[in-house]
Design a protein around this nucleic acid. Structure first.
Length: 467
RNA sequence: GCGCCCCUAGCUCAAUCUGGCAGAGCAACGGACUCUUAAUCCGCAGGUUGGGGGUUCAACUCCCCCGGGGCGCACCA
């Protein structure tokens, strides 16, 4: 059979050569033969000499071909940008000081029929970059760096959690009832079972069932799907880290979040104080802790809580520019007030503590105030990064919260939850005191790679299909 | 979903404001060149200006519809 070879024996990565041959002088020959492989990024044919820049995933190296020395020199001089080449030869340094592989033998590993072509500007068109990520990754080093950083981040996250005794699990993506978050799901259909299934909006309920079963520390890093709009901070499918720890409450998780995130920043960027989109972001613990009520008062100048009169809350929500729904209680009104007046001004890192029970159907009531729950959101760089709470363990209270959600759902709230009997049955077996945490992994990757658009950290972000 | 902006050669961009022959660099193709570094030089080719309709003697340019994209708003992580 013809065509390109089925394999190629590479001895060295391009990026490893400069350090190894640091002492080689200009015009010098090392006497060492290496084989390298990669993509041709530039070609500089020059009569009976030719230079090419070869790039692999570790870096670049110059190939140096000579008519009298290189097999099929004519073919080499005709390489096109984008061709994949394997080359073998002695490592030399040219007279001008460029470390090179002096090509004796070479082979075309894959020809590029298409090339993006511009050596200087590469590919900048956003649509091309995300629709044809293969071209983006080839043309833009930065894109590969971001992908690699994301992988490093995930590895470190897992290592951290394993060291702390957490067990990684996988739970269903296809859910008979979407639960664990307030969001509109994607619907699909199973032919053999002849029933609709929903792509998960959160793994939460299944993970807590594992805790019921005795798995005291579990986590899952997985894709979740929400049928909502796209934005620079929202992709319909995104990656969530959720973890559950028995015998712990939400205060324990504040410390865990601080440690995890600042530790990642330090190991990935070298410092727990980093620069994000031109702003200084210091993730060194401890982070500020403040209740939602305190923050609203701070931002608006007058006190507000779930115990403020509904009339006053309604008035203040209206003056913040939101038409209050008559069905909203004090809790929902306070959350609206917070989201409109306070959250936009937060940069963080800050723990926003103690949410209204009304808007938190899976969280346990606050030990000091039954109208609140023990829940926090983490705001970092002006956006929500994580959400956590002491888990609701009482099956009767959970049923009541589900029923309230179902009523809202019947009243037209497409993001409200349904009553999940399977989950209630699990709770009846006994869920020990447990704290649970969710972190938006893509947003964490954005922070750590200093990228402004969630699409930068997702290899193939959701786009409208080409027609 | 609503508002504003963008779409010109394979890539990066001019020409659009003020309607008057669609251009350049890179890539590609042909050629020259024995140390280049975005090599250089000579030559050649490359377009239904996102699609459709309208106004006009004349439309990349002005108007309308459609498609795709970006940002903002809304919702969320």
């Amino acid at each position: 059979m013809g065509g390109p070879p089925y394999r190629f024996d590479r001895t060295d990565e391009a990026g490893s050569l400069p350090a190894r041959f640091e002492s080689l002088e200009a015009g010098g020959e090392s006497g060492e033969v290496v084989s390298v492989a990669g993509r041709v990024m530039l070609v500089r044919p020059q009569g009976r000499l030719a230079f090419a820049t070869l790039k692999d995933s570790s870096g670049s190296i110059q190939l140096f071909a000579l008519a009298g020395l290189t097999a099929d020199f004519e073919g080499f001089a005709k390489l096109r940008l984008g061709d994949w080449v394997g080359a073998t030869g002695q490592v030399v340094r040219t007279r001008r000081g460029e470390l090179s592989v002096q090509v004796a033998e070479w082979t075309l590993l894959a020809g590029a029929r298409r090339s993006f072509g511009d050596k200087w500007k590469g590919v900048t068109d956003v649509e091309t970059r995300f629709r044809q990520r293969e071209v983006d990754l080839w043309a833009n080093d930065r894109s590969r760096e971001v992908m690699t950083a994301r992988s490093d981040m995930l590895r470190m996250l897992r290592e951290d959690l394993w060291e702390r005794g957490f067990v990684e699990v996988e739970t269903p993506v296809l859910h008979p009832i979407p639960g664990g978050a307030l969001a509109r799901p994607f619907v699909t259909h199973h032919q053999a079972l002849d029933c609709d299934l929903y792509l998960r909006i959160a793994p939460e309920l299944y993970l807590k069932r594992l805790v019921v079963g005795g798995m005291e520390k579990v986590f899952e890093i997985g894709r979740v799907f929400r049928n909502e709009g796209l934005s620079p901070r929202h992709n319909p499918e995104f990656t969530m880290l959720e973890l559950y720890q028995a015998y712990a409450d939400y205060t324990d998780l504040t410390m865990l979040v601080e440690d995890l995130v600042s530790g990642l920043a330090r190991r990935l960027t070298g410092s727990s104080a980093l620069s994000y989109q031109g702003s200084c972001l210091d993730l060194t613990p401890p982070w500020r802790r403040a209740t939602m009520a305190e923050l609203v008062e701070e931002a608006t100048g007058s006190p507000a809580s779930v115990h403020t009169s509904v009339d006053e809350l309604r008035r203040r929500v209206a003056s913040a520019g939101v038409e209050p729904d008559p069905a909203w209680g004090a809790g929902k009104l306070l959350l609206e007030l917070y989201e409109k007046t306070t959250e936009p001004g937060l940069f963080g890192p800050v723990f926003v503590l103690d949410f209204p029970a009304e808007v938190s159907p899976l969280a346990r009531r606050h030990r000091a105030d039954p109208d609140l729950v023990e829940r926090f959101e983490v705001v970092v760089a002006g956006r929500e990064l994580a959400n956590a709470f002491s888990e609701l363990v009482d099956p009767d209270d959970q049923r009541a919260r589900f029923v309230a959600q179902a009523r809202a759902r019947d009243a037209g709230d497409s993001e409200a939850m349904s009553v999940d009997e399977e989950y209630l049955r699990a709770l009846e077996y006994g869920l020990p005191p447990t704290a649970g945490l969710g972190i938006g992994v893509d947003r964490l990757a954005m922070l750590l790679t200093d990228t402004a658009n969630i699409r930068e950290v997702i290899a193939f972000p959701t786009l409208r299909p080409e027609r």
